[in-house]
């Protein structure tokens, strides 16, 4: 029967079978997976990173502290408990400037700063991105719609040990006088990995 089953349907049935057995055998509960997913939908996601970026844009002293000691600067803000939790134990921010563009990659796998960015998107985990971004970052970014001139230095950060990096993108023109809340609303996960600029909606 499994011979002619579509690949995705088979995986869906297989993972459901596994989850079902793990619940029956008392390894996890009937609610475990939903609770984990809920945690990343409500508590830890890119909405946290967006707030940090917005704060850094309006408060230059906070920005300085964020770049010097990322965990303690984050601890100043009110977030759900766990900003130094799983995959956030050693986070560090790097700032884009007119002279430097930063891009984060994990060539060996998919390390990602969960508390500030949530879970990594497909493109970040794709072996093609991991293979190419480290050697030809501008070419990859151009495919993503971002032109970085050769006169600007590109720093590619390959996450291979304890640090989980994220990018403090540049504040776009046309946002003068905006509140932190308005600013946070335009900060995307891609901009916090250096794969896009923050754009002002038309």
């Amino acid at each position: 029967m499994t011979e002619n089953v579509d690949r995705e349907t088979y995986s869906a049935a297989r993972v459901r079978a596994l989850e079902s057995l793990l619940i029956e055998k008392g390894i996890i509960t009937g609610e475990t997976v939903d609770k984990v997913i809920d945690f990343f939908e409500k508590d830890m996601g890119p909405f946290n990173g967006a707030r940090i970026v917005a704060k850094a844009w309006v408060d230059p002293e906070f920005k300085e502290r964020l770049l010097a000691d990322t965990p303690s600067a984050i601890a100043e803000l009110s977030f759900p408990r766990g900003m130094a939790g799983a995959e956030g134990e050693n986070m560090a921010a790097v700032a884009n400037t007119p002279e430097v563009h930063n891009l984060i990659v994990c060539t060996m796998c998919s390390c990602y700063p969960w508390p500030v960015l949530g879970l990594p998107p497909y493109w970040f985990k794709d072996p093609t991105f991991r293979a190419r971004a480290i050697r030809e970052p501008r070419k990859v970014l151009k495919e993503f719609g971002l032109d970085i001139d050769e006169s600007k230095e590109v720093k590619v950060w390959d996450t291979s040990a304890q640090i989980r990096w994220f990018v403090l993108p540049e504040r776009p023109d046309g946002t003068e006088g905006w509140t932190e809340e308005q600013l946070a609303a335009i900060v995307t996960p891609e901009s916090m990995q250096g794969a896009a600029k923050v754009a002002v909606p038309a």
């Binding site: 030809e136 970052p137 050769e150 600007k152 230095e153 590109v154 590619v156 291979s160 040990a161």
Partner: peptide
């Protein structure tokens, strides 16, 4: 590779 590109690795 590309000009003006640095790679940082821990």
């Amino acid at each position: 590779t590309e000009p003006n590109t640095k790679i940082y690795v821990q």
